[in-house]
């Protein structure tokens, strides 16, 4: 079931084109990562679907709801840095959010989410006395307030220490298990790889790649080989048409295979041409390497 349809959205700030005819769909229960270098339009698209920035053209639709109305109880979101009243306590800040979200038992709900993010002991502390990590946790508590179906998080692990990052990951995976749809924009590719089921990669407001993360990661196979006469083997592989790209580093070749070519085909090819390989290794592709390849 589709929860969000983004259709041809463009947005510019003066001469700067932040989004260029972006279209994508997000299905229920996806953990959807939006990736991209700085200025790629990640935050802008989140700001548009949350109603704080107006698009120049195109449309978006939540839950196939024509008017995008009555979404309050269904979406919890954090955009960029946590935004709270610094002179108010954590409790009062969340109380304001609870009133906005029309939550029926606000005190009960506030206690529940503060417990969930480990800030219950600080509920009467003023917001401006919190560390950056604690502020991020409070923002997460605010997102979880009212048990929304969809969580939207922009850089949710910003400012957190490794333990904090692991905690956030755990909370998100736990929420996903409860059937929530989660949309995350992040720079931390390792986190996205560990958490997300689907990704969209943006660059300069354009969608470069979209799909299931496991399919994107296995879409290109790469192997590393070495042999005694590496220069000759390099020339042969390049001319063979078996590889999309071959890079020689020291005494090794890193080969990105053509779509229909298997790793064993390279082994056979080398053998037929009288090369004895003393290293043959299939490379595990990280999201980081794939991301860099796509955006470069």
């Amino acid at each position: 079931m589709r929860v969000l349809k983004i259709d041809n959205i463009s947005k510019s700030y003066g001469k700067n084109q932040a989004l260029d005819r972006l279209s994508l769909n997000i299905e229920k229960t996806n953990i959807f990562g939006i990736l991209g270098p700085n200025g790629s339009g990640k935050t802008t698209i989140l700001a548009i679907i949350l109603g704080v920035v107006k698009q120049n053209s195109g449309n978006f639709q939540w839950f196939d709801n024509q008017e995008n109305t009555q979404l309050t109880e269904r979406i919890g979101a954090l955009l960029e840095m946590p935004n709270f009243y610094p002179y108010l306590s954590l409790y009062k800040n969340l109380r304001i959010s609870a009133e906005i979200k029309k939550i029926e038992n606000p005190d009960e709900e506030i206690e529940k989410v503060l417990n969930e993010v480990g800030l219950i002991e600080r509920q009467y502390s003023k917001y401006n006395t919190l560390s950056l990590g604690m502020k991020q946790r409070l923002a997460l508590a605010s997102v979880l307030l009212g048990n929304p179906e969809i969580l939207i998080l922009d850089e949710p692990t910003n400012g957190l220490d490794p333990k904090g990052i692991a905690d956030v990951r755990e909370i998100l995976i736990d929420q996903a298990k409860k059937g929530k749809t989660i949309i995350i924009a992040s720079h931390i590719l390792d986190e996205v790889q560990k958490t997300c089921s689907h990704i969209a990669i943006l660059k300069k407001g354009k969608l470069l790649k979209l799909g299931r993360i496991d399919e994107i990661l296995k879409s290109e196979k790469t192997i590393t080989i070495s042999s005694d006469n590496i220069d000759e083997l390099y020339e042969l592989i390049v001319r063979s048409g078996l590889s999309k790209k071959t890079i020689k580093i020291n005494n090794e070749l890193i080969i990105t295979l053509e779509d229909k070519i298997q790793a064993k085909d390279i082994n056979e090819f080398a053998f037929k041409n009288n090369f004895i390989l003393n290293k043959f290794e299939e490379r595990k592709i990280s999201l980081e390497s794939e991301f860099l390849k796509i955006v470069d």
Binding site: L79, I100, K101, K102
Partner: peptide, 17 residues
């Protein structure tokens, strides 16, 4: 001014106001 400065106007809208 505080609502702009603390970006709470934006957060209020995100929260559903």
């Amino acid at each position: 001014g505080n609502e702009f400065n603390f970006r709470t106007l934006r957060q209020n809208i995100i929260d559903g106001l």
